[in-house]
Amino acid sequence: MIDAQNVSKLYNRSVYALRDLTLKIEKGDFVFLTGPSGAGKSTFLRLLLREETPNKGALRVAGRDLSRLTTRQVQAYRRGVGFVFQDFKLIPRMTVLENIAFVPKVLGAGSVPMRRRTFQVLKWVGLQHRMNAFPLELSGGEQQRVAIARALINDPVLVLADEPTGNLDPDLSLEIMNLFREINARGTTVVVATHDRELIRQVGRHTITLAHGRIVENE
């Protein structure tokens, strides 16, 4: 699924965010990306979302070299990738329902299948009773579930999450992780960046540890 070959990313001339990174993540894998602050976790996810491209090396996802995509191909690629951030990134002036339906709407989906699918994912994260609430009326855990529903609406083959539980207490964190496990159980590849070692211990999956942009552990 993901194949990184000697990937390096520099933000400035001298600062390596990622250095000579080589790794493989299989289709259907559930991977934790961990390591201290500044290790390059977010950078790697940004490369996978094709927000950035590597300065050196090749990063392939599902056989596609992410450095060699046209604008249209980037759009097509991103439609198959779901993302979740630590700060949820919900749109405050839209209701829960609108936040989720926003994605198929801006991708030009018809309104009937769009509605059906929106209800489906909303139900799946257990928030159908809150669909007319606004994000700021929800708890952190609920907001993150809305964000997860939004990430799932396109049936992505790959879900990326950057510190999805960073703003949540341990119980809620585990609850959110269970959602990711369920997503993964249906065959979707999941990559979660977190420095919450306790959470990793509880969930116990394939873990890649980074430090200073290099892999220090891959188990």
Binding site: E51, Q75, A76, N154
Partner: peptide, 17 residues
């Protein structure tokens, strides 16, 4: 801009953005 960011990240066509 948050909206636009999300549109870009989900692969919305330029015309929609």
């Amino acid at each position: 801009k948050d909206e636009i960011k999300i549109m870009e990240l989900v692969g919305a066509p330029i015309g929609y953005i």
